[in-house]
């Protein structure tokens, strides 16, 4: 009892003594929080402003786009810019091509990269380390080094001006995704494999029925990265596609720009339409995004 009381009293004393300092600290923390919020708010405006500008331009009358001084808000909202811009060029065809290319890329990347990643994560073999380093080294090779020979290869195969050069490479693995998936597969306990193996499961079944179902978040991340990367890919279509009926959205936008450069309002409207799938995917799967970035980002540690 005694000990208990004395203990209580000492703590009371320290509280009283410390209260002055603590009050100062609390104020300091409050000021700090305020500063942080002010900075965050100001920076958010800076990051959002270009988007707002884009939307506002897309709704303006043609003559208002280049009014002086520039006005941030449109005088009247011309929603017509959206359908009119879309039909100025065969954007429905471009959309179809983009969907074909992007889907083929996403599926191809998922299939090839998960197989390869499983090999690197789970199967032991001579030469594995050196091959893995070779895989990582391909991440360092600038695309510019290989675009000429790649072009020659596809032209030898008679695939220039077809969608194949945009699709085929995805079916043979991509180092960044393989690395991401391997990192994830390695976090799955090997006991699960061993147990399945004792039950007589083949390696492929372990891959297909144990590893893959447990890796849905990582696979989702790969799918999203592949989707976004391909949806806005301009370089490969620019090199390989000639005829307009094979144009992707990115290429179509570029063409649109050349022909109707003054019609910034419609150009912006169509640009926004092409961004909608990306933004939708992003908002639906933000968590996966951040996870994926983290997984590979930390891989460098």
């Amino acid at each position: 009892m005694n000990v208990d009381l004395s203990g209580r009293s000492t703590s009371a004393v320290t509280t009283q003594v410390g209260s002055q300092a603590r009050l100062g600290m609390r104020n300091q923390r409050r000021v700090q929080t305020l500063v942080v919020y002010a900075l965050l708010a100001a920076l958010s405006v800076l990051f959002i402003l270009p988007f707002m500008w884009m939307v506002s331009t897309s709704l303006k009358e043609s003559q208002d786009v280049f009014s002086y001084p520039p006005s941030f808000f449109p005088n009247s909202f011309i929603w017509q810019n959206y359908p009119r811009g879309w039909t100025l060029l065969p954007f429905n065809t471009f959309l179809t091509n983009s969907i074909i290319v992007t889907t083929a890329n996403v599926v191809g990347n998922l299939v090839s990269c998960s197989l390869v990643a499983f090999g690197f994560a789970r199967l032991r073999a001579r030469g594995r380390n050196i091959l893995f380093l070779a895989l990582l080294a391909t991440l360092m090779i600038p695309r510019e080094v290989t675009i000429v020979p790649r072009f020659l290869l596809f032209s030898q195969l008679g695939m220039v001006n077809t969608l194949w050069p945009l699709i085929l490479p995805a079916w043979f693995g991509y180092a960044f995704f393989i690395f991401l998936l391997r990192q994830f597969f390695m976090t799955i306990p090997t006991e699960l494999d061993d147990a399945a193996r004792i039950d007589g499961a083949s390696t492929f079944r372990i891959f297909f029925e144990i590893i893959l179902p447990l890796s849905k978040p990582a696979l989702g991340t790969v799918a999203i990265f592949a989707f976004i990367g391909n949806w806005s890919n301009l370089l490969d279509p620019l090199i390989y596609i000639r005829s307009q009926e094979l144009y992707t959205l990115a290429l179509g936008l570029n063409l649109f720009r050349g022909q109707n450069f003054t019609q910034f309002n419609m150009l912006m409207a169509v640009s926004i339409i092409t961004l909608i799938p990306v933004l939708t995917v992003f908002f639906l799967s933000q968590r996966l995004f951040v996870q994926g970035v983290t997984l590979t980002g930390m891989g460098g540690r």
């Binding site: 090999g119 199967l123 032991r124 391909t138 490479p169 079916w171 891959f207």
Partner: peptide, 25 residues
Amino acid sequence: REEREFYLFIALWIIGFLAFDAGPI
């Protein structure tokens, strides 16, 4: 056997590596 399986699993990448990376370089 594990080694053989390893090379089967990564076969796609090996082909891609030769055709789209090492070969072109």
